[in-house]
Design a protein around this nucleic acid. Structure first.
Lengths: 346, 346
DNA sequence: TTGTAGGCGTTATCAT
DNA sequence: ATGATAACGCCTACAA
């Protein structure tokens, strides 16, 4: 039962840079330089320091590092809700790519509210994050540009050009067009649409894509076949119910996201309508669950994991001083079992 | 176009405690005391300082605070995967209750791997979090107790008593018993079970509850009716498929979590088996999506949002020096449309 | 009750 | 190439 902790022991008191310096017979500055590659140091000293670091199990203190004016090695991530099936996966992608680079992610949720989002950003700044990733925020372009003057910023869900700013946008119009076109190709002519919360640009874009496909095929756009479902399951269910209640006639339904498609399938099922025999259903996002719905859902693939990874990589590039110049893959239609040929009109 | 920033302007350089002190004509220590309630100060000075704080828009720097040996006002949260539908909601609960108390949450994912989890904990410690919440971790009790000596710890998914430690456990055995009993009450006698990853205590508990209900009803426990589905959708789907392929006869299926139940419903659907007419299906967890499955899933309610809130509240109590003494609600069966009376044997 | 001084662990700016 | 020395912004004895 020895008293002195074994080398590398983590549970005993914190080992400081100063202790490493002392143990290896050099000054703290030299240790710091080796750690940060700030300057060239002689091989001997470097070896001595490396050994001391290993033996003492030294880990730099990010807090102190942050205070000293340097970086905190943390990046703030503003998401709208941490438990969203879509963004949750993106967060995983962010975490995955930030971690190996030594950065930690600080997640905060804006709850789709601009004021809350502003507070989140303030919190993040007070914590001195080195950069911020904002996932489909509600903030205006101007505020974003201003923010980007203070620290590197990556935003998704919009196109924007500014120094220190990297914007990642997804082609929602094209995705929606693809989905609608698919239904038209299957022979459907009465295609209803469950729109998302139209306060979101992407919801408006998806509606526009739906409309564009219709018009390109010479089909009329009918207001009566569009219901707002607010992007959530209940909204999708209720919107579908409203469509049904008012006697709208349609053989296909394009939901602006998978969550609403899930809700729609419940309403359809309750009404005794089978998917796809009676109504074809197409979603948007390709959540992990889409493939596990009964029947598996046809949808537009939007790579959320890749979205997160790309955003994080963009941040890493920005942090390193490089121009990011990244982009997202084009939308891709995934045909599963929820969409089939149009049968008789109902 | 004035040069001096308006009061409360956030985008200009950081306002420090020292600046507040100067502006209000007192010493930095006094400002600090007011901020922390460390000592009594005269009403006049307090007023002057409060005004200066408001006018300058001062926000204490958590980094500096942390370095100075005080608290960082952040608590680390170790989850297994940030995009889990169950834990994601718990994270929201944590964030929700920590935020009003001025604490930020630092989320890290252990990926169900003890080694990774250890690294996460080290990261969190190096960032000097004031406490840690560990959601269903893989770490041993001993390690947890040791950790609790260094800082307040809240763990879920196990029972454990130790100073500085608050454990929140859920009665998985009882929940599974309830689910199985429900199927028995409906007249089912051939009830299959999709077990979770048996490396997890909760999966073992749910299996035990299933078995207990069977035995209490005088029904035999048959290995052939149990398949491991690993807690994910694909696992549930494949396990169900295996059951079907090997010709197992059952009129009801109890999945150890909702995700597997979703997968099971796909396999059943593909086989042309209807839920609940041909096979009754019951899940566990009551994910938000369970109510939006077609048909809506009967399941055991486990309040994930409340789990998160309770864990966070326990941490807040621990941080305040109080004994937490919190507990989780008892399991509750939610009967929806996926379970119905047993018909003819198949 | 209030102010002064020292320190938290690191980096940056000078010297050397 | 390396070492003192001074911040970084705050907290906490200790002193008054």
């Amino acid at each position: 039962m020895r008293k002195s902790p074994p080398a590398g022991d983590r549970s005993s008191g914190p080992v400081t840079l100063g202790m490493v310096a002392e143990a290896s017979g050099v000054s703290p500055s030299t240790v710091s330089r080796i750690l940060n590659g700030t300057a060239i140091v002689s091989p001997e000293k470097r070896a001595a320091v490396d050994r001391a670091i290993a033996e003492l199990g030294f880990v730099p203190n990010p807090i102190a590092r942050g205070l000293a004016g340097g970086r905190t090695m943390s990046v703030g991530v503003v998401t709208q809700s941490i438990d969203s099936p879509f963004y949750g996966v993106a967060l995983r992608g962010i975490e995955e790519t930030l971690e190996p680079a030594g950065y930690s992610a600080l997640f905060v949720s804006g709850h789709w509210d601009e004021a809350v989002e502003k507070r989140c950003i303030d919190t993040l700044r007070s914590r001195r994050v080195d950069g911020m990733i904002i996932l489909n925020g509600r903030l205006g372009d101007a505020a974003l540009k201003a923010l980007a003057k203070a620290l590197p910023v990556v935003v998704t869900g919009r196109s924007l050009k500014a120094p220190g700013l990297c914007a990642l946008d997804f082609n929602n119009v094209e995705g929606a067009r693809l989905a609608t076109q698919h239904l038209i190709d299957l022979g459907h002519r009465d295609i209803a649409h469950l729109s998302g919360d139209l306060a979101h640009p992407d919801a408006r874009d998806r509606l526009a894509g739906y409309r564009a496909a219709l018009e390109a095929a010479g089909l009329p756009f009918r207001e009566a076949l569009v219901e707002s479902g607010g992007y959530f399951e209940d909204g999708g269910r209720d919107a579908t119910q409203r469509l049904l209640d008012r006697g709208a006639r349609f053989t296909a339904l394009f939901a602006a996201n998978d969550q609403m498609a899930f809700g729609a399938s419940v309403a359809l099922h309750k009404q005794g309508l089978r998917v796809p025999q009676d109504v074809s259903l197409v979603g948007f996002d390709d959540l992990a669950l889409a493939a596990h719905m009964a029947p598996p859902l046809s949808t537009v693939h939007q790579a959320s994991l890749e979205l997160g990874r790309t955003a994080a990589q963009g941040m890493l590039n920005l942090l390193a001083g490089d121009k990011p110049a990244l982009s997202l893959p084009e939308p891709r239609l995934i045909v599963r079992d929820s969409s089939g040929p149009a049968a008789r009109r109902r």
